[in-house]
Amino acid sequence: MHNRRAGWIIGGCFLLIVPAALLALCLGRYPLSLGTVLSTLRHPAGSGIAANIVYVLRLPRILGAILIGAALAAAGSAYQRCFSNPLVSPDLLGVANGAAVGAAIAILLGRGTWFTQLAAFAGGVAAVCLALLIPRLIGHRGKLILVLSGVVVTGFMQAALGLLKYLADPDSQLPSIVYWQLGSIAKVDFSSLIAALPSFVLGFVILLAERWHLTIMATGMANSRTSGINPRVEQPLIIAGATLLTAGAVALSGTIGWVGLVIPHIARLLVGDDARYNLPLSLALGGLFMLVIDTLARTLSAGEIPLSILTGFIGTPLFILILARNFAGGGSHD
């Protein structure tokens, strides 16, 4: 029958986000007691230091962290299945850097947060199209070629980002691009969250609605065809959904690596590879993971540690484990 164990794990992880978020509201340079936090939350109209810290500083940041982590992990899980390739993710495909170029252009032009969202999405779509085009041009398809193609696109987008920084006004624009690009949730406020919300909602809805077909697409192109799925129709839809999520996250916080690659694999260890369970669990785990990372980033030291530094230190050794798992015994590398 249906996988009841997976259901419990997914539900548990979603529920765990609530106490984790409450704990994160308490922690910080100005510690608050749980009682203070709860009473501040119960009286939203209140004022004073506690209300200021909770509503202006910590709550938007915590919500942002949860949404960004969930979005990146869900996008990673979807890309991996859609291309039947466990080695891809928003950052490895170049989508995150493409979205960063789009968002940086918007910042340079001095447009608002809505325009930044759109530009990030356009940049992400351009990057994923490029990453898919290269294997076709070479006339060779395989899991490693797509990953290498993502490396090429990432390099290109980083160069483009470098050019934008070179062109930016060093006094006003450059610092805001650099700060945002390092990957920080510190500047997230309610208005930028609201601007990102449509991308997140649409992306989550598309991917969750397609989760059963994602499972089938993960078994390979030929197999999805004989199962009655037309990849030419469904692949673009899934790419659009996953790219919306990536763009939404990047526009808020810059590129944060490794989450989209590693979290779906951790979810796989817990509930398997079926996207009906893997995708919701990736979403919950991604949110939880990012919340923990961001809380560490703002409490570990007096200054802020950029998030990509922490996710990189955790993500890279895990990626080696994933490689070992996928390539052991010449298993499924092509």
Partner: peptide, 29 residues
């Protein structure tokens, strides 16, 4: 594609699946 899949089923020569599914999950597809 969907209608065709109700008429024809193929057992391919290369039946290895890219996904790490259980037997039950794979047959469900």
């Amino acid at each position: 594609t969907r209608e065709l899949a109700r008429q024809l089923a193929l057992v391919p020569q290369d039946y290895r699946s890219g996904a790490d599914l259980t037997v039950e999950e794979f047959v469900l597809t």
